[in-house]
């Protein structure tokens, strides 16, 4: 099921939590929702699930408006809220059966779905324990299991991997990717490598507005636009090298590291690469390249650039 968000806005008292955002998520796509705390991620997700009302604009799920038909659309959505609230006094298995029944899973399939979720989320050893006795990681798995229990077309996951250990994170990511092949998934997170690892597309919002939208690679290109290379040379002086490198046709800026070591940062002009030229220059001059590393703009930097003003 496709989700289309049109000019969505939400206001709390005088503060605009979500300010006219529009985007689309297609079936089979995993959308990573990034943004600093209070940027409007959770509000947007809550509006998609129908938990809070929509102030302006609309959300269309498969062409049907959440504003008008929200109630009947709920059963297509699996939702894991932030902080993962659960009934702590209920055993895992009872809780999952309760959720399945509420989501309208037919009685004769509840058993089967519950068993499947327990296996899928690795809860077999804990299934008879009360949720309150579980560690945070296991609770998170219960949260995921209840979100997926009715095999929803749309999964909304608000920070799904918080509190998990690295092994569990890898497992959960694999699980999300697996599910994302046939379903529509929106997940929010603070962990930037996570979006790169799991998501097909990244959406960064700040102060209720979309500031970036695209794959990790397109975001990088937009953000830097320039090739940056770290270079270390032997057999020359810093001054000589800077002069010679700056003379290359596509090189924009050359910076030598302070302290007289022969390390340089070479920035090329937008849309050009100078690595070949640098190599040829060094061969001609008889310099030895001991290091040449292309510097990728990290997602962290993009995120910081877009969200810190």
């Amino acid at each position: 099921m496709d989700i289309r968000i049109e000019n969505l806005s939400k206001r709390y008292a005088s503060q605009r939590a979500v300010d006219g955002i529009s985007f689309e998520v297609k079936t089979g796509e995993i959308l990573g929702f990034l943004g600093p705390n209070g940027a409007g991620k959770s509000s947007t997700m809550k509006m998609i699930t129908g938990y809070i009302g929509i102030d302006g604009g609309d959300i269309l799920i498969d062409g049907r408006s959440v504003k008008r038909e929200g109630q009947s659309l709920k059963r297509y959505i699996g939702y894991l809220p932030e902080h993962n609230p659960l009934y702590l006094d209920m055993p895992v298995i009872d809780y999952l059966q309760f959720c399945a029944a509420l989501q309208g899973v037919p009685n004769d399939r509840i058993e089967e779905r519950t068993r499947m979720m327990i296996r899928l989320c690795g809860l077999n050893a804990e299934k008879h324990k009360n949720i309150g006795e579980l560690s945070k990681g296991y609770r998170q798995r219960v949260g995921l299991a209840q979100a997926m229990i009715h095999d929803p077309e749309i999964l909304i996951l608000d920070e799904p991997t918080t509190g998990l250990d690295p092994n569990q994170i890898v497992e959960i990511r694999r699980l999300i990717r697996e599910i994302g092949k046939a379903k529509t998934v929106i997940l929010s997170t603070h962990i930037l490598p996570e979006v790169e690892a799991t998501c097909d597309r990244i959406l960064i919002i700040n102060k209720g507005k979309i500031v970036a939208d695209g794959t990790a690679d397109t975001l990088r290109q937009q953000a830097s636009g320039q090739e940056v290379v770290h270079l270390q040379l032997e057999g020359t002086t810093a001054q000589h090298a800077v002069e010679a490198l700056s003379a290359l046709p596509h090189v924009a800026v050359v910076k030598a590291d302070e302290g007289g070591s022969s390390r340089f940062e070479v920035k090329s002009r937008a849309g050009h690469s100078s690595r070949r030229d640098i190599f040829n220059l060094c061969v001609a001059k008889g310099w030895v390249i001991t290091e040449m590393t292309p510097v990728e703009t990290r997602l962290e930097d993009i995120f910081r650039n877009l969200t810190v003003n």
Partner: peptide, 14 residues
């Protein structure tokens, strides 16, 4: 208080 109301109300119930 525990926020489970959010889970409950986002299920397919009115």
């Amino acid at each position: 208080k525990t926020g489970t109301i959010e889970l409950l109300l986002t299920k397919a119930v009115t």
